[in-house]
Nucleic acid binder design. Structure first.
Length: 216
DNA sequence: GCCCAGGTGTTTC
DNA sequence: GAAACACATGGG
């Protein structure tokens, strides 16, 4: 009962937010990354970290010609850590990258993932040490083109400010809210999340009011 | 110098 | 479960 009422208002709200953001910013053609591996690596490195710091680490990996599965997978966390120093939490993230790469190797690389259903793929990603719901969904959506909505800090902050959520809902609750009210579309989820990030980076932040905000 | 940034795992109550 | 904490760099 309460859920239905909430869902219908969210449906209009979520669609409205997308319409306004798309009108203001246009298509984003996201995620910043040239290959599936680069996108997945970026998704892990950006955990609680500014993207500008992640870019530096990616550049170091690229400069060493290490951004391929063949070259990166054999490296130990100890070898990876100094290379990704600028991304912060480098010891933790080196171990997480190694765990992810180990899993990826066991499945036969990105090509081997194509036959795995999205729900199963998500479960396997979450089973990797250091890959939580946001990182898993970022990889699913942006590296693997699966229709999964990514909920991040920006999503919470903006929706909370817009009054659609309280802000402390569980991750899967918010993901389900998007996925059950919007058409199931990789393209749409990709653009929508990218637009939320664009808004967060462009202006407003936590300001109580902002005249130039498309959601004002 | 302080605060924050596209989280996650562990520990503790 | 949920709250507190560790993990670390770089820019404002």
């Amino acid at each position: 009962m309460r859920g239905n009422r909430k869902r219908s208002s969210n449906s209009a709200g979520l669609t409205d937010i997308h319409r306004r953001l798309f009108g203001a910013f246009g298509p984003q053609h996201w995620w910043p990354g040239d290959t599936q591996l680069e996108i997945a690596v970026g998704a892990i490195l950006t955990q609680n970290t500014a993207w500008s710091n992640v870019e530096k680490a990616i550049a170091v990996l690229k400069s060493h010609r290490l951004l391929t599965l063949e070259r990166l997978t054999p490296l130990s966390p100890t070898e990876i850590a100094p290379l990704i120093r600028s991304a912060g939490f480098y010891n933790i993230k080196a171990a997480r990258l190694a765990a992810f790469l180990g899993w990826l190797k066991s499945t036969g690389g990105f090509a081997g993932l194509r036959r795995i259903p999205t729900a199963e793929l998500r479960a396997q990603l979450l089973a990797c040490h250091g890959i939580g719901p946001e990182t898993a969904d970022s990889i699913l959506l942006y590296a693997l083109s699966r229709p999964v909505f990514v909920v991040d800090t920006y999503t919470r902050r903006i929706l909370s400010r817009y009054g659609l959520i309280v802000g402390d809902e569980h991750y899967d609750t918010l993901r389900a809210m998007f996925e059950s009210t919007l058409p199931r579309s990789t393209r749409l989820y990709n653009e929508y999340h990218a637009l939320l990030v664009r808004l967060a980076k462009t202006n407003c932040r936590s300001q109580p009011s902002c005249d130039s905000c498309p959601l004002a």
